[in-house]
């Protein structure tokens, strides 16, 4: 058995939720949440937490003199892949112009998710 402590982000109350898991990673007990949303959040966080990753990379040839373009994963990726995504972005540099939604990198860190631009740069 082990316990995982979480802060629910569902609302400003920020309940401290305790999840009790057995050795096979099955959830045995969820306590501390004040409403069902907290339970749902806790389930997701302990079984398959995901995040959108945002960052910025260099651009070249910008008429506006911009040096960076911001980008994000097109959808959620597993939380434990965050650092792999960031590693794959090191040293990347993309040509202008860039439009919001342009795919800048395919299948980042083997997640199957693309990195797309979040800023127009000319």
């Amino acid at each position: 058995m082990n316990t995982v402590n979480l802060t629910c982000i569902g609302c400003p109350l920020g309940c401290q939720i305790e999840v009790l898991m057995d050795d096979d990673k099955n959830i045995r007990l969820i306590t501390g949440n004040t409403c069902p949303r907290g339970e749902k959040y806790a389930r997701k966080e302990v079984t398959a937490p995901t995040r959108i990753v945002t960052s910025s990379v260099r651009v070249y040839g910008s008429r506006q003199g911009e040096r960076m373009v911001s980008l994000k994963t097109a959808s959620d990726i597993p939380k434990e892949k965050i650092m792999d995504v960031i590693r794959d972005l090191r040293g990347v540099s993309v040509p202008c112009p860039v439009r919001i939604g342009d795919v800048l990198l395919h299948n980042i860190a083997g997640t199957g998710v693309d990195m797309i631009a979040t800023k127009d740069v000319d």
Binding site: I52, T54, S56, S70, K72, I100, T118, D120
Partner: peptide, 22 residues
């Protein structure tokens, strides 16, 4: 503000700062 979390109320989706501005 290149992180996401903007626009949930206005556009019912989570945008980054530059996307919301655009």
């Amino acid at each position: 503000c290149i992180h996401n979390g903007f626009g949930l109320h206005t556009f019912q989706e989570e945008l980054t700062g530059p996307e919301y501005a655009q």
